[in-house]
């Protein structure tokens, strides 16, 4: 009986912690507009395990494409060829690649900015998974093999894995999957302190499309009312009196 109470208290504390983090997330609002070339029109994977594997495959293919299109960069031979495919190994490779690109940039040999941003996004994804793998309660754990975290496990046998993950992290991974390696052309960011920042990609700003700008503008207005509704719902749940 005592044990059950202890567990439920821990669960409640964890739920409160997650809810607090969700409220934290509500303090900023971000509207991204991306342009996608071609589309398979297939549904995104339902299982989070497939999503992670799919995302890593896309990242790997993009890295290959970047170096195929930029043959002047000599990619180290031992990078991105591991058969045993884990986020940890990919993260290590990305750090080597970034260091090399930064070094080449100092000598005037710069990588295309869109590709560089893609590289940074891939690094951000690896950093996010790494931050969730510090052996605390918030870890993204995996059932097989025992006590392995998502950061360290090989994703080759993804069908045998079962990732234990909270809704918040699941959505974050899904968001990385949705963004994929695509080109973000416009971004508007609202802060709770009233700051609004709109970023427009240089390539797009040289050849802007009025329709895209209009829709982004309209979606921004819609997002603000959507955000307001979310805040009202959260307020309704918290404020009882």
């Amino acid at each position: 009986m005592f044990k059950r109470n202890k567990t439920s208290d821990a669960q409640i504390k964890k739920q409160q912690n997650t809810f607090g983090k969700i409220l934290d997330d509500l303090t900023t609002l971000e509207i991204n507009t991306i342009i996608k070339k071609g589309m398979s029109a297939t549904e995104p994977p339902e299982r989070i395990e497939e999503t992670v594997k799919g995302l890593l495959d896309r990242y790997k293919n993009r890295i290959d494409l970047i170096f195929y299109n930029n043959s002047e960069f000599n990619i180290p031979e031992d990078v991105c060829i591991q058969d045993d495919f884990s986020i940890q190994a990919f993260h290590k490779d990305l750090l080597i690649i970034k260091e090399m690109i930064d070094e080449e940039g100092k000598h005037g040999n710069r990588l295309d900015e869109t590709d560089y941003i893609r590289l940074l996004r891939m690094l951000a994804f690896c950093d996010f998974i790494w931050a969730r793998s510090d052996q605390t309660d918030d870890d993204i754990k995996i059932d097989f093999p025992e006590n392995t975290t998502l950061y360290h496990v090989s994703l080759n046998d993804i069908s045998k894995l079962k990732i234990d993950i909270c809704m918040r992290d699941r959505v974050k991974i899904n968001r990385y999957y949705d963004l994929g390696d695509e080109r973000v052309v416009m971004q508007t960011r609202f802060g709770i302190d009233g700051d609004v920042v709109t970023r427009i990609e240089e390539g797009f700003s040289n050849k802007p499309k009025k329709l895209v700008i209009d829709i982004h503008d309209e979606q921004t207005n819609l997002s603000v009312s959507y955000w307001k509704s979310l805040i009202d719902i959260a307020k309704g749940i918290i404020v009882r009196d």
Binding site: I22, D25, L26, T28, L29, E30, I31, N32, T33, I34, I35, K36, K37, G38, M39, A41, M167, R168, V171, R175, D178, L179, E182, K209, L211, V212, I215, H216, Q219, L222, S223, Y226, W227, L230
Partner: peptide
């Protein structure tokens, strides 16, 4: 049934719009 536009609303208020291209045309 080719997609033209996708809008995704996330639980934290963020929004993602995806425009699809065909032969470099929206």
């Amino acid at each position: 049934n080719h997609p033209l536009i996708t809008t995704t609303f996330y639980f934290d208020g963020d929004v993602l719009n995806i425009f699809y291209l065909k032969n470099e045309e929206f």
